[in-house]
Amino acid sequence: MKPWLVRICGLILLLPLLLSAEELSELRIAKPRAMDDPAYLYFSGLLQKALQKTANGRAVPPLVTTIAMAEDRMVRELRAGRIDILWLGGSKERARNLLVVPIPLERGLVGYRQFIIRKSRVAEFDAINTLADLRKFKACQGAQWGDTEILRTAKLPLVTSVNYESLFKLLVAGRCDYYPRGFHQGKIELANRTDTYPELMVYEPLMLYYPFAAYFYVHPRNKQLAQWLQDGLEKMIDDGELLAYMQQHEHTRRAFPLQATVVKRLLVVPNHYLPDFADEKNARYWFQPGDFSLAGD
């Protein structure tokens, strides 16, 4: 193939990446685990609300699902321009390789972890008071999740899988001892699996905390789309709409009011992988430990 033709073909392949936000006819996203998955509905709904909030006459592109894929592949597909946007946990590496909209999508709620455990093991978890105690147990964890390295750095033993549903099965089988889930996640996950896993429960007296949040990511060339999303999310915060959305949506509503669950023991681990722009002390964007009902408060 002649060099000039190679260059033209290359430009054609890059064309979708060079379109401005106003010219995008659709937004391609990865297919969810299930179309009624509450997490997918939360993030896709928030994405559309943020775009609508500051559309200013622009047409909001419809969402079009591609195929289901693990997190690492989603990142590769976004970098290659085969999907347009994704939502994942924040990390320094992802912030270097992608364009991140720097606003936590659940106000950092996902970093407040409570454990799904087998009901027969409550007494063992009642005895956990320190990280050293917790290190005697193995956590079930997604192999490619953004917080997996946080747990490894804290020297917490892990049993991992790339398959989300298999983690429940590993827990039931005794391959791991607990499944740390965001403060809002565990209850709805078990509510949807009561018949399948009746031996599981959310253990509420203990909370593991590390600053962590999910963000929207786009290709570095889609700066206008990123700014549109950021403007919309900022306006939703100003109007109180983001918090109201969290309080009402099926994915997050079981966490509220935050003070309803009394946490007797709080274990804190640092997150050395938090993106440099993140300021977990900023209450405009992040829930603070004091927002929860901690024993002794």
Results as ranks from 00 to 15, higher is better:
residue 80 A to P: 07
residue 43 F to L: 03
residue 53 K to M: 11
residue 59 A to G: 03
residue 59 A to V: 15
residue 19 L to S: 11
residue 41 L to F: 05
residue 24 L to P: 00
residue 56 N to F: 05
residue 87 W to P: 00
residue 74 M to D: 01
residue 52 Q to R: 15
residue 74 M to L: 11
residue 33 R to Q: 07
residue 39 A to Y: 07
residue 31 K to M: 09
residue 41 L to V: 12
residue 20 S to L: 13
residue 31 K to I: 00
residue 78 L to S: 04
residue 76 R to E: 13
residue 29 I to S: 01
residue 26 E to W: 05
residue 71 E to T: 05
residue 62 P to C: 07
residue 88 L to D: 00
residue 36 D to Q: 12
residue 69 M to T: 07
residue 21 A to S: 14
residue 34 A to H: 11
residue 33 R to D: 06
residue 65 T to C: 03
residue 95 A to F: 08
residue 83 I to N: 01
residue 16 P to H: 09
residue 29 I to A: 03
residue 12 I to Q: 07
residue 67 I to M: 09
residue 77 E to F: 10
residue 32 P to W: 02
residue 28 R to D: 05
residue 19 L to F: 10
residue 32 P to Y: 03
residue 57 G to S: 05
residue 47 L to G: 01
residue 29 I to N: 00
residue 37 D to S: 10
residue 44 S to K: 07
residue 26 E to H: 14
residue 33 R to N: 05
residue 18 L to F: 14
residue 74 M to S: 12
residue 91 S to F: 08
residue 70 A to G: 10
residue 44 S to R: 09
residue 92 K to P: 13
residue 67 I to D: 14
residue 66 T to G: 02
residue 70 A to F: 12
residue 13 L to N: 07
residue 72 D to K: 15
residue 69 M to C: 03
residue 44 S to Q: 07
residue 73 R to G: 01
residue 43 F to W: 08
residue 17 L to V: 14
residue 76 R to W: 07
residue 76 R to D: 09
residue 65 T to E: 11
residue 29 I to G: 00
residue 44 S to D: 02
residue 44 S to T: 13
residue 47 L to Q: 04
residue 82 R to F: 12
residue 73 R to N: 08
residue 71 E to K: 09
residue 94 R to H: 06
residue 21 A to F: 08
residue 49 K to S: 06
residue 63 L to Y: 02
residue 23 E to M: 13
residue 79 R to V: 08
residue 65 T to H: 02
residue 88 L to V: 02
residue 88 L to K: 07
residue 50 A to K: 05
residue 13 L to A: 15
residue 59 A to S: 13
residue 71 E to D: 15
residue 22 E to L: 04
residue 50 A to P: 07
residue 92 K to H: 12
residue 42 Y to M: 04
residue 75 V to H: 03
residue 31 K to N: 06
residue 42 Y to I: 05
residue 64 V to R: 14
residue 80 A to M: 10
residue 35 M to C: 03
residue 49 K to T: 00
residue 33 R to K: 09
residue 52 Q to G: 09
residue 25 S to A: 14
residue 52 Q to Y: 06
residue 40 Y to E: 05
residue 18 L to S: 14
residue 59 A to I: 14
residue 73 R to A: 09
residue 88 L to Q: 12
residue 23 E to R: 14
residue 79 R to K: 15
residue 53 K to F: 00
residue 61 P to W: 08
residue 29 I to E: 00
residue 51 L to F: 06
residue 37 D to K: 02
residue 16 P to S: 10
residue 89 G to P: 01
residue 72 D to P: 01
residue 16 P to I: 12
residue 71 E to W: 06
residue 34 A to K: 12
residue 90 G to N: 04
residue 24 L to S: 02
residue 27 L to N: 04
residue 66 T to L: 08
residue 89 G to D: 00
residue 29 I to T: 12
residue 56 N to A: 14
residue 17 L to A: 10
residue 13 L to I: 12
residue 61 P to R: 09
residue 15 L to I: 13
residue 38 P to I: 09
residue 24 L to I: 06
residue 42 Y to V: 04
residue 60 V to N: 03
